[in-house]
């Protein structure tokens, strides 16, 4: 049983639903922002997520970054200490998908020395009739960049829990893996 703490950077174009995802995470359906308030620079949201089938919990410090590029330089300074990232696009907005490569590039430039990992998320799945990016395309991009892929709707609270369960269990398994490495080192040295 362990309680871990991790900083998760959420990035992507404006209005794709980053703030909405951060707020409904942890099953807070009522926290969905119905009207749009653009994020200035960044907001910090705290969410505790239990890892499925275990007593382990991860407390996420969600670093909800603005999609406005005027903040990019300051954001990159604050991203240095991230443990994980989540790149979000809007499945009805082709441009937001095209920009994922740019966001990924910015994130990897500032990731510091940490061993980070991330997920790609296509949001607004409830607007299926307006879909402009196929699930297949999303998957392909994620696979080519070694990220897990998810589609979700922050509005309907569909698919959000899966994203956070994945991030939490991956974070815990990295922790356990590090411990196994250290214990093995101890056995081999003495």
């Amino acid at each position: 049983m362990v309680l871990l703490h991790g900083k998760l950077v959420v990035a992507g174009d404006m209005t794709v639903g980053k703030t909405a995802i951060c707020h409904v995470a942890g099953n807070d359906v009522t926290a969905f922002p119905k009207s749009y308030n653009c994020t200035n620079m960044a907001d910090l949201v705290l969410k505790q997520i239990r890892v499925p089938d275990s007593d382990d919990t991860v407390e996420f410090f969600l670093f909800d970054s603005s999609g406005n590029s005027i903040y990019l330089d300051s954001l990159k300074d604050a991203w240095v200490t991230m443990d994980m990232y989540c790149i979000v696009y809007d499945i009805t907005d082709r441009n937001s998908f095209k920009n994922c490569g740019m966001w990924l590039e910015q994130l990897s430039q500032s990731r510091g020395d940490h061993n980070v990992f991330g997920v790609l998320v296509g949001n607004k799945k409830d607007k299926e009739n307006y879909r402009a990016v196929s699930t297949q395309e999303g998957k392909q991009l994620a696979t080519s960049r070694k990220m897990e892929f998810f589609e979700c709707s922050a509005k309907d609270n569909k698919g959000i829990a899966e994203i956070f369960k994945h991030l939490a269990s991956e974070f815990v398994s990295r922790y356990r893996k590090r411990i196994r490495t250290l214990e093995k080192m101890g056995r081999e040295t003495y």
Binding site: H5, V58, R178
Partner: peptide
């Protein structure tokens, strides 16, 4: 013993 250790559990 250096075999036993304290783990930090995330964030600095």
């Amino acid at each position: 013993s250096e075999k036993v250790f304290w783990m930090t559990t995330g964030l600095y």
